[in-house]
Computed example of a mutant assay.
Amino acid sequence: MARSCSARLHGDAAAFSAALRSLLNNPQFSDVTFVVGRERREVFAHRCVLACRCQAFRGMLSAAGGPAPRAPLVLGNVQPDVFLAVIEFLYTNCVTLDSHIALEVLTSSVEYGLQELCKLCVEFIKETLSVEQVCEALQAAVTYGQGDLQQHCLAFIEDCTAAVVRTRGFQELSDAVLARVLRSDRLAVDELELVQAVREWAHVSSAVLERPVPEVAALPVRELRLPLLAPSELATLESHNQRDLLIPAESITAAWRCHALRRGSGVPARLCRPRRGTRPREHHRHLDPHGK
C-alpha cells in the first residue's frame, strides 16, 4: 500500500501581500465604511479581514450588524492617517510609519489589542527618537506599560538633558513621570538648571490644570537636590521661591542646614549625590556620606 504524504507548500508571498494591499481603502467589494477624524474622511474596509485579524474590530462589527450592515461607523477621535496605518497592518502585516503618527499608531495598537503592531511601533520610535519627541514618547511608554521603551527614553534624556528640558514635551510631562526622570543620577545638566526647568514646568502645569504651583509640583520638587547648590545660589533660589512657593520652606531649610553643618545630615542621601552633569562646588565633598 502506498504511503500517504502531505506538505504545506508556500506560494509567492510578495504577490499575495500585493494582492491584499490592493484592497486597502478600496471601495470595490467593501462591505464596511468608517468615517474617521474631524475631517470625516471615509475609509473602506472588509468585515471578514478586520474580524479575523482583530478581536476589537470583531466586537465592533458584530455590534454594528443587523438590518443596516453598511451603516458607516464613526471614529471621531483618531486621525485618518493613523487609522489607515492600522488598517494597512491588518491587511498586510506591515505598517508604514513616520515620526508624526508613530506615537498615535502605538496608542491605537494598544486600544485595539494589536500586540505585534505595538512592537513594530516601539521599535520605530526607538530608532527615530529625537530631542523634541522623547518626552512625549516617555509619557506614552509609561501610560501603556512599555518598559523597554521607557528605559530607552530615559537613557536618551540622560544623554541630552540640557536640550530636552527646553522642549515643549518636557513642559507637558505628568508630575509622576517628571519625578521619575528627576530621580536619575545620570542627567547631563546642572542642578540649578533643573530647578529652573521644574519651575517653568510647574507654572505651565498650574495654568493648564488650574491648580496652585506648589500643589502641581509637589511630587517632582521632592527630587530636586537643593543641597548641591552653593550658598549664593540657594539664597537666590529662596528669593525667587517667595513669588510662587514652588519649593516647601522645610526643603530649603534642610539645604541650608547642610551648609551650616558641613555635611548632609538629615537629608536623604540621594539628594546629596551629584548627578553626571552637576557642576562641582567646593562644599560637595562635605555632602559625600562616605567622605572623610
Rank of each mutant, 00 (worst) to 15 (best):
M1Q: 10
S4R: 09
R8T: 15
L9Q: 05
L9E: 09
H10S: 13
G11Y: 04
G11P: 10
A13G: 03
A14H: 11
A15Y: 05
A15R: 15
L24Y: 11
Q28D: 14
V35E: 14
G37D: 11
R38C: 03
R38S: 12
E39C: 00
R40A: 14
F44Q: 09
A45W: 03
Q55E: 15
G59E: 13
L61Q: 10
A63E: 15
P67M: 05
L73A: 04
V74P: 00
L75P: 10
P80G: 10
P80D: 06
D81T: 13
V82Y: 03
V86D: 06
E88P: 07
V95E: 09
V95D: 06
L97I: 11
F124A: 01
V131F: 01
V134N: 07
A141G: 12
V142A: 08
Y144E: 01
L149T: 08
L149F: 09
Q151V: 06
A163Q: 15
T167F: 06
G169K: 05
G169N: 04
Q171R: 15
L173C: 06
A176F: 04
V177S: 02
R183S: 07
D185R: 12
A188T: 11
V189G: 01
V189T: 15
V195Q: 07
W201G: 08
W201Y: 07
S205P: 02
V208R: 15
L209V: 06
L228C: 07
L229S: 10
T236Q: 14
E238C: 08
N241D: 12
R243F: 09
R243K: 12
I247E: 08
A249D: 14
W256H: 13
A260I: 13
L261P: 01
R263D: 13
S265L: 13
V267E: 01
V267I: 08
P268A: 04
P274Y: 03
R275L: 04
G277F: 04
R279Q: 13
D288I: 01
D288Y: 01
K292C: 06
K292W: 08
